[in-house]
Design a protein around this nucleic acid. Structure first.
Lengths: 176, 176
DNA sequence: GGCAACTGGTTTCATTTGAAACTATATGTT
DNA sequence: AACATATAGTTTCAAATGAAACCAGTTGCC
């Protein structure tokens, strides 16, 4: 370890500090952490802001929670999913998925059918209403995304996705 | 609208699907959304995974919640912050900040001092214990971050931060 | 000085959350 | 066939959350 400045951190000028960070030698004064330079924090904060802004669209305009939106979106992408699968995709726990499904079914936006082979699983489908809602919601969500992305060039966007994919891979690597 | 494919979406090959998405013409069939290509979702999911992995470090090893960690980290970066300021930085609501502070004070990791000018505000400081904890925790957090970032080149890392900054700017722009 | 409007921080309360218990079905093992 | 083990999905329960009420102090205005 001890190897902090791997990535030059560009703005290594910690604004207005003795900048005597980077451990390594002996530490008499405690290490400081600039959260603005700490990727997990930055990323989280950005994602959070985006989520929140976006959830205003499907929350206020459509009365849909984030969990519900995710279920619907997955169903729009691929029909015949089970609660389990949705849970895996969205990384929401069983309970949350279950509740979202109940709520959506309550509003007849989705419908369930029992699997014939396995009585425990139930396949989920969009109803007409669900599809109708999505055909309003999805374009709006995309339009919003486009506005957000308008600030990026195609290359920047491409690179961003690629970098994120790398991080995801590394993450699964680290997780084990 | 209707202008989806602004950014060429590179891996347009949705793994194992008819890939017949991207609307554009007339829609008789409802639009489908591939969450895997939807930045808000991707970003959120990535940030979430990172947060969760990292929180294992300060959660399990140090018994610290995310909120508490954020408060501590900000205090490590700049002493003499108020609850208000921390709330602004971290975008956590008053209540959450207040609770984190209480918990941290309970464990004597931080200390408060009343402001002389304004009896309502109280400045927060790390205690010796708090500093001690951070001088263990911060290096570990950084080490973990380094492992995660090991997969990126310096340029990729730089670009990532730059792109994120752009998105953040755009977001504040859109928010108003 | 006194009154209204405001602000920093805490508390309350109803809602949301997630872990663990539970139900019902399925699979494997003897 | 009987029994243990596993799995899909639901429910329960205690803890975390956030909006709004609240308290204490401050500022502005007459």
């Amino acid at each position: 370890m001890t190897s902090r400045p791997r990535h030059p951190k560009l703005s290594d000028a910690t604004p207005g500090g003795p900048a005597g960070h980077d451990i390594g030698s002996h530490d008499d004064e405690p290490p400081r952490l600039d959260l603005g330079q700490f990727l997990p924090y930055r990323l989280n904060s950005l994602a959070d802001r985006i989520s929140q802004a976006l959830s205003r669209i499907y929350g206020e305009r459509f009365g849909i929670t984030i969990a519900e939106w995710r279920v619907l979106a997955w169903l729009s992408h691929r029909e015949e999913l089970t609660a389990k699968q949705i849970g895996e995709h969205t990384r929401m726990d069983k309970a949350k998925v279950s509740r979202a499904i109940q709520a959506l079914e309550g509003r007849t936006l989705i419908r369930r059918t029992q699997s014939a082979q396995d009585q425990r699983v139930q396949y989920l489908h969009l109803t007409q209403q669900g599809e109708a809602l999505l055909s309003e919601l999805i374009p709006q969500a995309r339009a919003w995304e486009d506005e957000l992305l308008a600030t990026l060039s195609s290359e920047e966007y491409r690179d961003l996705l690629a970098t994120m994919a790398k991080l995801e891979r590394q993450l699964t690597h680290l997780e084990r």
